[in-house]
């Protein structure tokens, strides 16, 4: 089992390495000359050469990649092209903001989705299940910005319960911060809850169809006991995977939501950089998102291995 876990973690690291190479290739090598596209057509050849040297573009691709990777591993993402500021200075607080928003949304979403997912599965085909199913379907179909603006229109413009812009800075007190990001958190909760609910329901249903659950019913156990003792312990592993994966989705889902609420997170930073074609920032954001996503995916698989009774109690 230890071997499997180590193998899975190794695979995660390898994936991250490959992804970093692809990101570098995509943003630095393929577009051709970054310098001329930044300076525009009016640049003199001397200016171009100087700028290239400044960016290190006169080095061969491989050594540029290695230098960049070395920097990233030490928390040095380079300098933003547009404002010449150190990217890490800008990125770190934004990353904290993004995690705060995602964590808040997860805190709202987890109990609702897992609870109702299990309930819907246990009451399959009944009213609870159908209503939960239709609601989840509708939530999944809503674009993030629709939900976001609907909430803004109702709860901050027509009734001023919450601020419409989730502007926070590093010295915003905690209570105010929570209040400011409530609307974006609710927006994300709605979307993620729907996904998680449906997946949880399906995982539990798969277990409810097994012969050992039938056997438990035939032993005369109550429905409650069958669910808590026989179904849920075996559904735990898939449900935990569902949760881990949806957390990953949360961190990524922020991109649109942050833009709706102009929340100073990594997603907004990245969109900003894309519109300004600020390549080092795009890279940095890409790597950050990739690491979070791959880490959570790896974690999900590791948990699945740990929770497997056959691997936990080898013969």
């Amino acid at each position: 089992m230890i071997r499997l876990i180590l193998m899975r973690i190794g695979l995660g690291l390898l994936t991250l390495f490959v992804v970093s190479a692809v990101i570098f290739l995509l943003t630095q090598i393929l577009p051709g000359d970054v310098a001329s596209s930044v300076l525009g057509q009016n640049a003199t050849p001397e200016n171009l050469a100087a700028f290239r040297h400044e960016l290190g573009l006169d080095q061969p691709a491989l050594s540029r990649y290695l230098t960049w990777l070395w920097g990233v591993l030490h928390g040095d993402f380079g300098v933003a092209l547009t404002n010449k500021r150190d990217i890490i200075q800008e990125l770190a607080p934004r990353f904290r903001n993004t995690l705060f928003l995602a964590g808040y949304a997860a805190l709202l979403a987890l109990p609702i989705s897992v609870g109702f997912g299990i309930l819907a599965a246990v009451r399959e085909g009944r009213l609870t299940d159908r209503v939960a199913n239709i609601l989840a379907l509708i939530c999944i179909s809503m674009p993030e910005f629709f939900v976001g603006y609907l909430l803004i229109l109702n709860f901050s413009v027509n009734h001023e319960y919450f601020p419409s812009l989730a502007t926070v800075s590093s010295d915003t007190p905690f209570g105010e911060r929570v209040w400011a990001v409530t609307l974006p958190a609710i927006t994300m909760t709605l979307l993620v809850t729907a996904h998680m609910l449906r997946m949880t329901r399906n995982s539990v249903l798969a277990i409810m169809s097994t012969p050992y659950v039938e056997m438990a019913f035939l032993k005369g156990l109550t429905r409650g006991r069958v669910v808590t003792r026989h179904a849920l312990p075996n559904a735990a592993s898939p449900i935990i995977s569902v949760i881990a994966l949806n957390l990953a989705y949360l961190v990524v889902g922020v991109v649109v939501v942050e833009n709706v609420f102009t929340y100073p997170g990594v997603g907004q930073y990245m969109i900003d950089a894309v519109t300004k074609r600020d390549v080092p920032v795009i890279e940095a954001c890409g790597i950050v998102f990739a690491s979070v996503f791959i880490t959570l995916n790896t974690l999900a698989d590791v948990l699945a291995i740990v929770l497997n009774p056959r691997l936990r109690h080898p013969r």
Partner: peptide, 16 residues
């Protein structure tokens, strides 16, 4: 490799 990070992030980088 493509699926190991969110498609939106790829899309942003490719469209760039």
């Amino acid at each position: 490799v493509v699926l190991s990070i969110p498609l939106l992030i790829w899309a942003l980088m490719i469209l760039n």
